[in-house]
């Protein structure tokens, strides 16, 4: 018999220019986050006598803040708290989401019920507001805030994963595996988990962007990094007082937050679309 391969061919799409730009930009931000001490070793140097100056001054293209710190260098150093925290938040909440969501979706019953109520409870309040309250009351500090955000981000991840698992459960290949007597743990990790990877990865990126916005919001309110530490939200809070003297002190970190979050969001959207197309073609 002549069997034909009928693999559906994906029309190869060119990676859009916007994505390349986003990746390059995030690469640069990531590099600063990893090693700002090397890139801008004098970022935290203060010059009290100079104080705040506007942009265009020799050696300070974007001017300085009230402590005489160079805005450009300080902004590059701020990349670390802008990336590390959000990534930890996104990964942390997704780990909770995957563990709880998979068990809830696969087992159903009481575990599912409890996970559902937990999600309902935390989703009934706006995450950012709750983060403000908890971080403000429990204690201030970057990692406390990160921890609070992990907890607050997790319910939507639990729901996401649970939904994806439940969608998989009635598929014939899962039911066949059950009838074959394959162990539940194996079904979960071998058959279900790989098929929810795309949705998890795409959502991870969207969460990084959202966490970046949330974390810098909290820093802006003084609930994130300690005073004096390089952080875009903090810089914005400081810059708010300097709008008259050096508006760039607020404008530059503001643009950095928007651009970085946009790049991560674009990447997440693009990835989820691409993975979707693959899944359809499979």
């Amino acid at each position: 018999m002549a069997f034909r391969r009928t693999a559906p061919r994906l029309p190869r799409r060119r990676t859009p220019v916007v994505m390349i730009v986003s990746v390059v930009l995030l690469g640069f931000v990531g590099f600063c986050a990893a090693a700002w001490e090397v890139v801008v070793p004098h970022a935290l140097d203060q010059d009290i006598y100079l104080g705040v100056v506007g942009g265009g001054v020799e050696g300070h293209p974007f001017g300085t803040d009230q402590l005489g710190r160079d805005i450009l260098q300080l902004s590059l150093a701020g990349a670390r708290s802008a990336l590390v925290g959000p990534i930890v938040v996104a990964v942390g909440s997704m780990v909770i989401g995957v563990l709880l969501g998979m068990v809830a979706g696969y087992r159903g019953g009481i575990v599912d019920m409890l996970a559902g109520r937990y999600a309902d409870l935390l989703l009934a309040l706006p995450a950012v507001l709750l983060a403000i309250v908890v971080a403000g009351m429990v204690g201030r500090g970057y990692w406390v805030t990160v921890g609070v955000l992990i907890v607050l981000f997790s319910p939507s991840d639990v729901r996401l994963v649970r939904g994806a698992v439940i969608e998989q459960m009635p598929r014939p290949y899962i039911e066949s595996a059950r009838v074959l007597g394959i162990r539940p743990s194996r079904i979960m990790f071998r058959h279900i988990a790989p098929n929810i990877v795309p949705i998890v990865v795409a959502n991870l990126l969207l969460n990084v962007a959202f966490a970046l916005v949330a974390l810098s919001s909290l820093s802006y309110l003084g609930l994130g990094v300690p005073p004096g530490a390089p952080d875009w939200g903090r810089q914005l809070a400081d810059g708010r007082e300097l709008l008259g003297d050096n508006p760039l002190a607020a404008v530059i970190p503001g643009i950095l937050i928007i651009v970085t979050a946009t790049a991560v969001n674009l990447l997440g959207d693009w990835l989820s679309e691409t993975l979707d197309r693959r899944a359809v073609a499979a």
């Binding site: 810059g239 709008l243 979050a261």
Partner: peptide, 21 residues
């Protein structure tokens, strides 16, 4: 996407800078 990515306070400060100041 830019709108979703932009925190309100950052947009607020930019608006203040451009339209008020």
């Amino acid at each position: 996407v830019v709108g979703v990515s932009a925190p309100g306070f950052a947009v607020g400060l930019l608006l203040l800078y451009v339209f008020a100041l």
